[in-house]
């Protein structure tokens, strides 16, 4: 458990470096404007990402990798609506490997190689969960687009679309018919 202890000890530094590396994935026109924004309402994702990063490292150190901390879940939600390819959006999870290795030190890592392998596997597990979440978020977006269309809020652009109430009535009738037929 030597490496995990080292992770726990250095979690603040690891999280910080990890965050720095996440930032490099952003567009150059973006700006480092939220530096001073500690308020979770004024800089919602700054809060989520910071807390998320730290808690993820904590969990990694404790070997509890069955799920991601809620702050990181929120952060992935944001990545899912920013203009990233999936690999870019989720790739940052894997950077945790290099950063952890660097902070723990190569010697310590080599000396406890089997433990390191377990840690790497845990990071993979976390990353795959992040990917699942990312995909779920993308699907949610499409679902919301569909819902918006169905609810009658999106009909405008094509003019004369049947209303939500009409649709509901219509659908209900169809279901009734189907039920009758099935009987």
């Amino acid at each position: 458990m030597i490496l995990r202890e080292a992770l726990a000890e250095n979690r603040v530094i690891i999280a910080e470096k990890w965050l720095d590396s996440i930032l490099t994935s952003y567009h150059e026109d973006g700006a480092r404007f939220f530096k001073k924004q500690k308020d979770r309402f004024a800089n919602p994702l700054g809060y989520n990402a910071r807390m998320g990063a730290e808690r993820t490292v904590e969990r990694l150190a404790a070997g509890e990798v069955s799920d991601l901390p809620p702050e990181l879940v929120q952060f992935i939600k944001l990545r899912a609506v920013q203009t990233f390819k999936p690999s870019e959006a989720i790739g940052f999870m894997y950077e945790l490997k290099q950063i952890s290795a660097k902070v723990c030190g190569m010697d310590l890592m080599a000396a406890n190689f089997s433990e390191w392998q377990a840690i790497e596997a845990d990071i993979d597990k976390l990353a795959l969960q992040a990917f699942d979440l990312f995909m779920a978020d993308r699907e949610l977006i499409y679902k919301i687009k569909l819902e918006e269309f169905k609810s009658g809020n999106a009909g405008t652009a094509n003019g004369g679309c049947p209303s939500g109430a009409v649709l509901r009535k219509h659908n209900a009738e169809k279901i009734e018919l189907k039920v009758i037929r099935d009987c």
Binding site: L23, E28, G30, A31, F34, N43, G46, Y47, M51, E54
Partner: peptide
């Protein structure tokens, strides 16, 4: 929200929303 709930380090780091400093 309690101050300690957010932690003190939150202030120092760059933004998660964007990141890079504009170069132009």
């Amino acid at each position: 929200i309690k101050a300690d709930e957010l932690g003190t380090r939150v202030a120092r780091d760059p933004s998660m929303m964007t990141g890079g400093v504009p170069t132009k």
